[in-house]
Nucleic acid binder design. Sequence first.
DNA 1: GATTACAGTTTTGTATACAAATTACCTCTC
DNA 2: GAGAGGTAATTTGTATACAAAACTGTAATC
Lengths: 229, 229
Amino acid sequence: MPDSNDRKRDVGAQIRTDIITGKLEPGTKLREVALAERYEVSRIPIREALRALEADGLVESRKYSGSVVAPSPVEDAEDLFEIRIVLESATAKRAARRVAERTAGQDPDPRWAEIREEIDAILDAGDAVIEAERYEDLAVLNMRFHFAVAELSGSLSFISLLRQISGKIEWLYSLNLMRRGPQAWPEHREIIAAIDAGQDALAAEVMARHVRRSRDSYFSTMSERPGTT
Amino acid sequence: MPDSNDRKRDVGAQIRTDIITGKLEPGTKLREVALAERYEVSRIPIREALRALEADGLVESRKYSGSVVAPSPVEDAEDLFEIRIVLESATAKRAARRVAERTAGQDPDPRWAEIREEIDAILDAGDAVIEAERYEDLAVLNMRFHFAVAELSGSLSFISLLRQISGKIEWLYSLNLMRRGPQAWPEHREIIAAIDAGQDALAAEVMARHVRRSRDSYFSTMSERPGTT
DNA sequence: GATTACAGTTTTGTATACAAATTACCTCTC
DNA sequence: GAGAGGTAATTTGTATACAAAACTGTAATC
């Protein structure tokens, strides 16, 4: 049971999960004083947290009019997946291209091996989780995998854009209780194989297909359980 | 001559232009108290402004360690142009697709006509500016054109991502004194023509080529005047 | 009865004051 | 002389207090 100091640690993360898990519904007014006493901090940290959440697209603010929980991300689902397709295809392509550069000795980044190992660890962890049928842990591993690939691309700009939409993506997945994890996992190995082979066009194509399948899976499960807005 | 109240109006914009124009060089420590007395406000608005600039990638902050002006965007130039290519191709494609939807009567968005007219106005204004050889005004018109196309796509998510990188893009252009404006302008009409014709693949292709040319122009002028980092 | 004007309340924006963490520098020791 | 430790000064993080703007409800007038 967390005491007040634990709560104080990162209020932003608290509000964030409260939004993503649905405790705070879209449209809810987020009054600073109310949040301040709820999380037992002053208004200043609340303000900063709200601004950060606004940057993540989970909260909307207008001057002198306060902040409200942003509309449900299901409205933007189509856009979010398309953004993922174009951005992550690009990162996969660049990651694969770097493999060729590295074998040619033109890319001395020491972090590459580190990230590459982390990816193997993530993939193995995912297999283990699937083996144990504890699918609920897959969402976070999935997210980590995609970010790790982005890191292989070596482009901080791409990573920061992906981080930008990751909040809404998480929210989306959380609402829909995505259960595609197990089927998606082999595709991850396929993506890494293309990257390792240095085949940039293939890597982009495989990644695009992977995200498209994720999108289709989302919309088909969404049509089974409609109107969660 | 602005008095203290004008300065107080939006400190963030002030700091932003000071960074973009080079008055504040990369790596400069941005001490809150110093900025506060310089712009004659308290530390709180400064803090909020710094957070906003951090989201734009113009400033970097670490806890208890303050904020510094971000590294020069020339490091990220390649990435930024590639991001523009993938994102703006997508927005152009979607804008063109909406034309077909609209003729089929499936898209009743009333703002479309408004934005479409604004684009014509921007294009005409650009022609006039070129006629008068006042090229320095083209940068802002160029930016407005690209955002207007993004608006035609109807996707707020894409727009917000483009806005996200627009700070660094502006910075980049400002550093390089891009002089490509006149040559780029006919290409803008080409893009709009493809969109108006509802040819989504063509619109994406033309937009991609346009941004690629912009990139090539940037790097060629950059090699003439190197080491402005 | 509807609408507009006004005042009271609520809520955010900003300033000042204090606490916590980091950085830098100085001293002491090996 | 170089390095480790500690203390002081600097700087950010947070709390409290006050000012400004927006919203709400009421009353008065057309």
